Amino acid sequence: MEWYEKLNDYFPEHEMKDRNQIQDLIDEKDVYHLVETDDYIVLYAEFPTFVFIDYLLVTSQARGKGIGTKVLDRMKKKGKLILLEVEPKDDENEDTRKRLAFYYKNGFQKADRIRYVRETDQGEPYFMHILYWSPTALSQDVVMREMEKACEEIHNFRAKQYYGRLLADPEKALTWKH
């Protein structure tokens, strides 16, 4: 599973799922897919009403060549809401700024009414932004409902088996900002 090592090298440790959980998702969930090329890796779940991008990695040698945009354009052609999570901008980590700029350039918006807080294995909270793209105007109520489903179906798939806890309990992780 070379793709897992590439993801593990790139994404922060607290954002990585257990290799076996991801493999179980691929093997057992009809909605969950892995696409791997020499240039990119994408793991995503396609539900009837939306697509949840779990991981998207463009390899270092392929960055800056429009490959990530092409991957997102293929997802957009499905004509569904697309959801993904991204860490907030960190002034000490240039990649966080570049990631956000990339998604905004590709038409994604931040679900600015939704607060999304996850926990590390040590119980430390960390914030994530929910970004979305939609072919039609929609309310963040829809984003919230579909993100709850992504948490339940993807993040929490066998989570108690692999982590002894839910990775993203939607009732705790997702709240409305006041």
Results as ranks from 00 to 15, higher is better:
residue 2 E to W: 11
residue 5 E to N: 14
residue 9 D to T: 05
residue 13 E to Q: 14
residue 14 H to N: 13
residue 15 E to Y: 03
residue 16 M to R: 13
residue 17 K to D: 13
residue 18 D to R: 01
residue 19 R to L: 09
residue 21 Q to P: 05
residue 21 Q to A: 03
residue 22 I to D: 00
residue 22 I to Q: 00
residue 24 D to A: 14
residue 25 L to S: 12
residue 26 I to H: 06
residue 27 D to H: 10
residue 28 E to D: 15
residue 34 L to T: 04
residue 34 L to D: 03
residue 34 L to S: 05
residue 35 V to W: 09
residue 35 V to A: 08
residue 37 T to F: 02
residue 38 D to T: 12
residue 39 D to I: 00
residue 39 D to T: 00
residue 42 V to D: 13
residue 46 E to M: 10
residue 46 E to N: 09
residue 46 E to K: 14
residue 48 P to M: 06
residue 50 F to G: 08
residue 51 V to S: 11
residue 55 Y to H: 01
residue 56 L to C: 04
residue 57 L to W: 02
residue 57 L to H: 04
residue 58 V to C: 04
residue 58 V to R: 04
residue 59 T to W: 00
residue 61 Q to T: 12
residue 62 A to T: 02
residue 64 G to P: 11
residue 64 G to M: 09
residue 66 G to H: 00
residue 67 I to D: 07
residue 67 I to S: 02
residue 68 G to Q: 10
residue 68 G to C: 08
residue 69 T to Y: 00
residue 70 K to F: 03
residue 71 V to T: 06
residue 71 V to M: 10
residue 73 D to L: 06
residue 75 M to Q: 15
residue 76 K to Q: 13
residue 79 G to Y: 01
residue 80 K to I: 06
residue 80 K to L: 15
residue 81 L to S: 09
residue 84 L to V: 09
residue 87 E to F: 00
residue 88 P to F: 02
residue 89 K to F: 08
residue 90 D to V: 02
residue 90 D to S: 06
residue 90 D to T: 03
residue 93 N to Y: 12
residue 94 E to S: 10
residue 96 T to K: 09
residue 97 R to N: 07
residue 100 L to I: 13
residue 100 L to S: 08
residue 100 L to C: 07
residue 101 A to R: 13
residue 101 A to F: 01
residue 102 F to K: 07
residue 104 Y to R: 15
residue 106 N to V: 06
residue 106 N to T: 05
residue 106 N to R: 08
residue 107 G to H: 04
residue 108 F to Q: 09
residue 108 F to V: 08
residue 110 K to F: 08
residue 110 K to C: 12
residue 111 A to S: 10
residue 112 D to Q: 03
residue 113 R to Y: 07
residue 114 I to Q: 04
residue 114 I to L: 14
residue 116 Y to D: 11
residue 118 R to L: 13
residue 126 Y to N: 09
residue 127 F to E: 15
residue 129 H to V: 00
residue 130 I to Q: 05
residue 133 W to F: 15
residue 134 S to V: 03
residue 136 T to K: 13
residue 137 A to I: 06
residue 137 A to S: 14
residue 138 L to G: 12
residue 138 L to K: 09
residue 139 S to D: 15
residue 139 S to A: 14
residue 139 S to W: 05
residue 140 Q to F: 01
residue 142 V to W: 10
residue 143 V to F: 12
residue 143 V to G: 08
residue 145 R to C: 02
residue 146 E to M: 12
residue 148 E to L: 02
residue 149 K to G: 02
residue 156 N to L: 10
residue 157 F to P: 12
residue 158 R to A: 08
residue 161 Q to E: 15
residue 165 R to T: 07
residue 166 L to F: 11
residue 171 E to T: 15
residue 171 E to Q: 15
residue 172 K to I: 13
residue 175 T to N: 09
residue 177 K to W: 04
